[in-house]
Amino acid sequence: MENLSVLICDDDTAILDAIEIFLVEEKYKVYKATNGVEALKILEEEEIQLIILDIMMPLLDGLSAMIKIRRKENLPIILLSAKSEDTDKIIGLNMGADDYVTKPFNSLELIARVKSQMRRYTNFGSIAPKPSVLRTGGLVLDTDAKEITVDGDIVKLTATEYGILEYLMKNMGRVFSINQIYEQVWNESSYAVENTVSVHIRRIREKIEINPKEPEYLKVVWGIGYKMERI
């Protein structure tokens, strides 16, 4: 399989060069553009599998460029921006981005997100669903094999962690309180459960999420409980 191509678009060439180095290390072929117009041109000429797009750029900004791309292409787009507010992220994702990374970013996180999107885009669309398999986004839980994979990589969980994850994935989108999870998974009455459940959930997040502080799958609803996001 030939190298996958990534188009990076940012008006700051220092950032472009740095990202290029990280991606080349991961064996991606990299195209660089410093504005939206240039990006669209490269996209027409080359075969690109993923785009990393800065929002604030001269000539054509990231969001406008993304709208134009989305008219014909279905490839993953990761927005990269200094705008870190929730509203900015929501606007970006609603306009067709697959992911949103804020500056300054951790290089490892960015690469992990690139890989995740790439695998989802290239591999998983074709896998036939089995009835024993629970899935959301790149997270797959096989109840028969008691096996969990994230973007194809196997994740090792303890028995309790697996119990919590399975319970949440079976009831995807529903919020459970600590007591409910405790009673279900531990099979005991929830007297003085203290923070056992929340510690377990943090650990699960650390294993399955690219950035555990901004979880993609296992979300914390503060003051109410936890839920598995349906993607």
């Binding site: 309180s177 929340s198 943090r202 914390v220 503060w222 003051g223 409980g225």
Partner: peptide, 15 residues
């Protein structure tokens, strides 16, 4: 919101 839930979640996060 439940204040107890929040505190347990928060303490768990920072454990």
């Amino acid at each position: 919101l439940d204040l107890n839930e929040l505190i347990l979640q928060a303490v768990g996060e920072c454990e």
